[in-house]
């Protein structure tokens, strides 16, 4: 496999319109949660990733040390790990495969025969969710689109280019350049999360505690 593809999630540009959440469902023909979840005192909805919710923006409001308010938005979805722990955890090597062209981590029908808890626990980001038939689901990097030289639905839809998608080397260069620019713009703590290990790179401007980063506790 060549270097494959990657995403850059630039939180300095995201304003949480959540077209990514909808565009994902539109392209991948995923229904809304049924019943529709209620409001729980937040804009953030649905409450969790699911078999039909593969991308979710997580909101957090906190005050910085200088008392200015930070309302941050960060994407939660499969990171498409370079060396995917979920694949290593699978009993059957065909259940979870790595797409040759893109590097996308893909769950097949065979995941219905895998241990849900084992696969989910293996994921450092707690991403996989089980559907009604037992199969596990998550972001597929819209590999069908990518194979046809189109970007994933979320990346195409994003109004402010907070989701960039492309060849991994180009995305890495873009991420590094953007990181420097953000640092120079008054955010010395800016960071790219898990730069070497995942295909979904997340650029944070503020310190990580200001974001609702969904990780296994």
């Amino acid at each position: 496999m060549a270097d494959g593809k990657s995403f850059l999630i630039d939180t300095t540009k995201c304003f949480a319109c959540r077209s990514c959440q909808v565009a994902c469902k539109q392209w991948n023909e995923l229904p809304a949660e049924d019943p529709v979840p209620t409001n729980r005192g937040s804009y953030e909805n649905p409450p969790d990733l699911s078999a039909s919710c593969w991308v979710k923006i997580q909101f957090k409001e906190t005050e910085r040390s200088d008392e200015s308010l930070a309302w941050t938005f960060v994407r939660n979805s499969c990171r498409h790990c370079i060396d995917a722990p979920c694949k290593q955890a699978a009993e059957n090597p065909d259940s979870i495969t790595i797409d040759e062209q893109t590097g996308a981590v893909l769950f097949g029908e065979g995941t219905a025969s895998e241990s849900y808890s084992k696969i989910r626990l293996a994921c450092p980001f707690d991403i996989p969710r089980q559907g009604a038939g037992g199969q596990l689901f998550k972001c597929v990097m819209c590999y069908d689109r990518v194979h046809n030289d189109e970007v994933p639905a979320c990346a195409k839809a994003c109004p402010s280019d907070a989701i960039e998608f492309g060849d991994r080397d180009e995305i890495l260069s873009m991420a590094d350049a953007r990181l420097e620019a953000v640092k120079a713009d008054g955010f010395p703590d800016a960071v790219i999360l898990d730069r070497r290990d995942v295909r979904l790179l997340v650029l944070l401007a503020d310190e990580a505690s200001l974001y609702s980063l969904h990780t296994r506790d």
Partner: peptide, 13 residues
Amino acid sequence: LAPVEAHAAELRK
């Protein structure tokens, strides 16, 4: 495509 890693190239729609 490598056999184990082959995925349908047709667009979903």
